[in-house]
Design a protein around this nucleic acid. Structure first.
Length: 504
RNA sequence: GCCCCCAUCGUCUAGAGGCCUAGGACGCCACCCUUUCAAGGUGGAGAUCAGGGGUUCGAAUCCCCUUGGGGGCACCA
């Protein structure tokens, strides 16, 4: 088994994207499965768009998912790890400068004095002529005198890499043999801007070479760029790593997943209460499967079973419904203390948003778990599910109080009777199995359907028609508040204009 | 426009020549359970394996073409 060095190289120009997380996961799984090394490198050479905030979001997100890197930059409170640092590209500029002058010295790269406007004009012409955009090579063969002339004009030169001719091919782990004629990659490309800062295709290769990466696992959108990278590896005199291009994650319309059409920020899923186990499990199944019918897999099981050679080629549509199902599966598997801990911030968020009036204690939440755990596809639905327990005063629309088959008078009568029955049970023996029998016999004696009676009570004390099991809910609410809410519902019914007379 | 990649139920996928009258999961529908909602259980609808040619005794699986979809073609990453 090979021990690969793999990496994830995010660019801090936006929040951690689901696609980046998936690529990171596949790299991580491959490294762990094969005993390799997983490296994190920050590609921050786009200074204009990179921010520290995004960097934090990305690092924190990967960490939260459980994707620990063996080598990577210093992060809050922690030193950089690994012998190939620094791991932020803006701290590696000397390296790129050295590589650039090496290429320049060997005439594998040359200064280009074309101005952006000039290049733009050429591109426009090509477009008009229905030709593929391509650098026209104007500066490829300048004489020293011509260069001097441009210099004296005050022009700053960018550096272009000589692409040459021929076919570049590689054996992609997921795609097999891929060959691309160099004539189709757009001509000599810029590797260093006129302002001296290096560009992506250049730095990625310099660093992958310097960091001894042996396998590049990345998105399919890089297939067309791969010839540039291979050419650069060769020019720098470095072994070309192996490539594995993953299928893309798609919007519902099968275009590349974008924030316009799909929620793409990992943090947003997290904020909705998707848990790492669910997300990791779901992401792992986007483009890969065990080949068996097993699909609920922990990260350890994924590490054990993941094989980069089994990744499939076709793009995968991001299906939120399936994510929610898997997430629910994992929430149900959480143990009580863990779930209470994970729920707390979501309850706090309800409080902060003013949707509830008080923060329940951990004991209170823990006691709720048996009726709540299997009803949570996401942690964020906790408020919707049992938020009524934590509000001071419940206002219920009088029309809502009346069950479908009943009228207001029957409802009022039933609620009053139920109130008496519950009061009769008394506070000391106020338990679900003490509450149910007397209320059932009340319904029987009065000739009401138990379901109707229960529904009337349910709405009166929760304001909702869909809740966890009624008697457990009443217990959670407490003796006093249950009676208060029943009284209040009775008042609401009494003061409401008689909407429907009995019997009509 | 040019180059490259891809193609099995709505979606994620199993399938590496006969085990496929194509399996599983999500979603959907029905039923069971049931005080509502979930969860769980059972069953169902849903794919002429994009289409057409080959190769073969035999093709979802191999080859070719077509069609469709996608990605890439920056002094972004």
């Amino acid at each position: 088994m090979t021990t690969d060095r793999v990496r994830i190289a995010p660019s801090p120009t936006g929040p951690l994207h689901i696609g980046t997380a998936r690529t990171a996961l596949f790299n991580f799984l491959h490294a762990r499965h094969t005993g390799g090394v997983f490296v994190l490198r920050l590609e921050d050479t786009d200074v204009a768009r990179s921010t520290l905030e995004y960097e934090n979001d990305i690092l924190e997100g990967l960490h939260w998912l459980g994707l620990r890197w063996d080598e990577g930059p210093e992060v809050a409170g922690e030193e950089a790890r690994g012998p190939f640092g620094p791991y932020r590209q803006m701290q590696r500029l000397e390296l790129y400068a050295a590589a650039a002058s090496q290429l320049l010295a060997n005439d594998q790269a040359y200064p280009c004095y074309c101005r952006p406007e000039e290049l733009e004009a050429v591109r426009k012409e090509q477009e008009a002529a229905k030709l593929p955009p391509r650098y026209n090579g104007r500066c490829a063969r300048l004489t020293p005198d011509e260069r001097a002339a441009f210099e004296s004009e005050g022009r700053k030169a960018a550096l272009r890499f000589r692409v040459g001719e021929g076919v570049v091919g590689w054996d992609d782990i997921v795609r097999g043999r891929v060959e691309i004629d160099v004539a189709n990659i757009g001509g000599d490309f810029v590797i260093v801007r006129a302002d001296g800062t290096p560009l992506y295709h250049f730095v990625v290769v310099v660093d992958d070479a310097a960091m001894n990466m042996t396998l590049i696992i990345r998105g399919e959108d890089h297939i067309s760029n791969t010839p540039k990278h291979i050419l650069l590896f060769r020019a720098l005199g470095h072994d070309v790593p192996t490539f594995a291009h993953l299928p893309l994650i798609l919007n519902a319309d099968r275009t590349k997943m974008s924030k316009r059409k799909t929620q793409t920020a990992l943090a947003d899923y997290r904020a909705e209460g998707f848990i790492r186990e669910g997300l990791v499990n779901y992401l792992a199944l986007l483009g890969w499967s065990t080949g068996t019918e097993d699909e609920i897999l922990s990260i350890d099981e994924l590490i054990e079973r993941f094989d980069i050679h089994e990744v499939n080629k076709a793009g995968a549509v991001f299906d939120r419904a399936r994510l929610e199902w898997l997430n629910g599966q994992w929430i149900r598997r959480l143990d009580a203390d863990d779930l209470v801990d994970r729920l707390r911030p979501f309850i706090q968020a309800e409080l902060d948003a003013g949707r509830i009036d008080r923060m329940p204690s951990d004991e209170e939440v823990r006691a709720l778990l048996p009726i709540v755990q299997e009803r949570l596809p996401r942690l964020g639905v906790i408020g919707e599910l049992v938020g009524f327990l934590w509000i001071d005063q419940l206002d219920v629309d009088p029309e809502r109080l009346v069950p479908k088959r009943w009228d207001a008078a029957t409802t009022a009568e039933a609620l009053a009777a139920a109130r008496a029955t519950i009061a009769d049970v008394g506070e000391v023996s106020y338990e679900a199995d003490e509450l149910e029998p007397p209320l059932r016999s009340l319904a029987e004696v009065r000739g009401w359907k138990a379901g109707d009676l229960f529904m009337a009570i349910r709405v009166a004390v929760t304001g909702r028609t869909a809740t966890p099991p009624l008697f457990d809910t009443l217990v959670a609410l407490g003796y006093e508040r249950t009676l208060e809410r029943l009284d209040r519902a009775l008042q609401t019914l009494a003061s409401a204009p008689a909407a429907s007379a009995p019997g009509t």
